[in-house]
Design a protein around this nucleic acid. Sequence first.
DNA 1: GAGTTACG
DNA 2: GCAT
Length: 203
Amino acid sequence: MASLPEGFRYLPAYLDRPAQENVVEQIRQVVADAPLYVAEMPRTGKPMSVRMTNCGLLGWVTDREKGYRYQAFHPTTKRGWPAIPRELLDLWDARSGYPKPPEACLVNFYSDEAKMGMHQDKDEVDLEAPVLSLSLGNACLFRIGGPDRRDSTTSLRLSSGDVVILGGAARLCFHGVDRIYPGTSTLLKNGGRINLTLRRVRR
DNA sequence: GAGTTACG
DNA sequence: GCAT
């Protein structure tokens, strides 16, 4: 029986349905300004199955040439990212336990076929701040291990409205999304799943 | 190695 | 389908 790392917090059904609908509307506005795009793996240029965009002062991006990084503008439009919606800033204030505001909100859109390989979030300078994640739409099978890629892992089904926080020892633990469960939510009319992750990037 | 696949 |  594998155990979850210290600092991992799971808040099931943290947002009720009206609150989820509210956030989805805010994210629709973000996407209207900063369109979803297909990110590329460093060096190989292989496309990721997840489509992404960001809001906040900084956004996490990746492409073949420059690899993983944070930057202040959308890779396609070259415009600055839209602001993080107030509801998400409030969520951070309520649950992160961190005094400074988040600078980045990565918006990952998973089609019903999309996956995310096991990885660490380690492109932030400030690794003391937790990463706070909100799931919207179809459920997924989330998996988290330890700080070493070979560490044993635990799988967890995340549903719409669930919040997960990676802080403390969990902050640098490998994690990923093995599958989406199609048709498990009516929140998004066209299916799929949205994951929002709030991060503090700079000290 | 933020992908892909193969094997129990 | 799920763990690795």
